[in-house]
Amino acid sequence: MADTAITVEGARKRYGSKDALDGLDLTVTRGTVHGVLGPNGAGKTTLVRILSTLLRPDGGRVEVAGHDVVAQAYAVRLRIGLLGQHAALDEELDGRQNLEMFGRLHHLGARRARARADELLARFDLTDTGRKPVGAYSGGMRRRLDLAASLITEPEVLFLDEPTTGLDPRGRAEVWDSVRSLVGGGTTVLLTTQYLEEADQLADRISVVDSGRVVADGTADELKAATGGDRVDVVLRHAGRLDDAVALLPLTGVRVDADRRLLSAPVTDRMAALSGVVRALEEAGIEAEDVALRRPTLDEVFLHLTDRTKEAA
């Protein structure tokens, strides 16, 4: 139990006639980053709201840092940090005032709250802007301050609900760096995201959520492996020969991306497929720029898994 930071067993939450969570199970090991990946409306935010004591589940057992989120909400709140979808800050106040206020609400006392605010501003590279109202911050800065506010007491468990939604690539990279720097400190992070790249970059393990359930669970590599193995990508020199190549090549389930002059298809026997493709192209006189074997991307895994649950429903 000591190794488990989050335990969710059969969590249910219903809004009207819609099940936001439909018997969701989840276990997160202490000190790891766990990605919860799913499309809009999959139940990710509902899950985070339940885990962070904002919402009561209708059923199931939910424990965070060894405490029940309903019966021991206060004990849970002492041990968690929450970064919601929107930067939950006072736009009119400056960065330091915001952090100081959250420090006081954690009952650090005035002096420690001030010292902690300065520490966090320095750590998140915000000291220079600490006196500017948050309304004047860039998206990435605001998110960093938001993250700092959720780390006032070095929480055991940190929830990040779509932390980079709406940020530009630079802001996203800033937030990713900050999250990575946390993990060394032993904080358990649960991160929801719609971006597969984000889960791939940050998470040790990933749970794919769809329609309020976990439909797959594992490391990024395990998920990729579970989705039907490797693919072969063929890039032709001339887009005009794509149709010829599709007709000719010994492949099934071919996807064509005309803009990139790309053919892609799943393969079972890697080497046989590779040599078969190369030989067939040579014989037909179709020029290829690149032929490569690769693992499926997380995107393909994700589409595969979420499509499958829709068919089953």
Partner: peptide, 12 residues
């Protein structure tokens, strides 16, 4: 803005 949510997630 989610400020109330953050307050509610604090031990206050």
């Amino acid at each position: 803005k989610g400020v109330v949510d953050r307050f509610r997630s604090l031990p206050m």
